[in-house]
Computed example of a mutant assay.
Amino acid sequence: MGAACAVLFSLTMAAQAEMACQRDAVDLRGEWGTARFTIEVADTPDARATGLMFREEMAKRAGMLFIYEHPQRVAFWMKNTLIPLDMIFVDETGVVRHIHENAVPGDLTAIPGGDGILVVLEVNAGIVHDYGITVGSQMRHEVFSGHSAIWPC
C-alpha cells in the first residue's frame, strides 16, 4: 500500500508542477473549459510598441502577453502587423474584461480595451471563437501574483 501511495503522490506533484505558473505560458479557464498558450512577454515600452509587428505567422497555441506596470486604459492598433489577431484584455485579478476578435492586419483604427487593464493577450484570429473564450474567463500567470488573483499560481 505504501508504494501505491508514493506513486499517487508523485503523480499529483508532477501534475501540480506542470500546471504551475511559468513566465512563458498563460492558462485561461471558463465555462467553456481550459486552454494553455505558450507566450512571449512584452513588458517594456519598446517591446510593447513592437509587439507582433512584421511577423508572418504564429503557432496556433502561441501568443504575446503585453504586461503593464499598473492597471490602466489601453488601446491597440494593427500598424505593421501582418497576421490577424484576437486580443484578450485582462484586469489585475486575472479576469477577462474585453475581447476584440479578428483585428485586421495593417488597420490603424484604435482598438480600445477599456480601463483597469493590466495585461493583453494577443493570439491568432479565430482562437477566441474556436475555444469559446468569453468576457469573465480567468487567466493565470505569474504577473498576477502581486495582485488579488482570482486564479492564483
Rank of each mutant, 00 (worst) to 15 (best):
E69R: 12
G113E: 03
K60N: 12
L82V: 06
R23T: 15
I133Q: 02
R29F: 01
E92D: 13
P71H: 02
R23M: 10
Q16P: 00
R29D: 04
E40R: 09
L65K: 03
V95I: 12
A62G: 07
A15T: 13
L118P: 00
G63S: 06
G51H: 02
A14C: 12
E122K: 01
Q22S: 10
E31I: 08
R48F: 06
V96F: 04
A103W: 01
P84W: 09
L82S: 08
D107G: 06
C21L: 09
L108H: 10
E31M: 11
L82Q: 10
L52Q: 05
G116Y: 07
F37S: 03
H129C: 04
P84N: 12
V119Y: 00
V104F: 08
G106K: 08
G114F: 06
A25R: 15
P105F: 08
H98D: 10
F76N: 02
I133D: 01
R55E: 05
V123Y: 00
E92M: 08
G132M: 08
M87C: 06
H129E: 15
G94C: 07
V119G: 01
T38Q: 13
C21Y: 04
T44A: 10
P45N: 12
V26F: 03
P112R: 12
G94K: 02
R29W: 06
G51F: 00
A42D: 05
R48L: 07
T50P: 00
E56W: 11
L82F: 07
V120D: 00
Y131V: 05
E57C: 09
L28Q: 03
D86M: 10
L118E: 00
I99K: 00
A35P: 02
I83H: 08
R23V: 11
E69Y: 05
V119H: 01
Y131L: 15
Q16K: 15
G132P: 02
D91P: 05
D43S: 06
G113D: 03
A42Q: 05
P71V: 03
T50F: 14
E101H: 10
M78C: 05
G114S: 10
Y131M: 09
G63N: 04
T50S: 14
M19D: 11
V119L: 03
A47S: 14
R61M: 15
M53Q: 15
P105Q: 10
E101L: 09
D86S: 11
A25M: 15
E18S: 12
G114C: 09
T109R: 14
A75I: 02
E57N: 15
Q16Y: 14
G132F: 06
I39V: 13
L65E: 03
V41P: 01
A20G: 10
G94L: 05
N80W: 07
G116C: 09
L85W: 05
M87I: 07
V120C: 03
V104I: 14
L65T: 02
V119I: 09
M53H: 08
A15H: 13
A15Y: 14
L65N: 01
D27R: 13
A47H: 09
E56A: 13
T134I: 05
T109S: 13
V26G: 01
F76K: 02
R29N: 04
V95S: 13
G132E: 07
N102I: 01
Y131H: 14
P45M: 09
V123D: 00
G132N: 06
L108S: 13
A49L: 15
F76A: 00
V74P: 00
Y68Q: 11
E122P: 04
D130A: 14
T134A: 12
M87R: 02
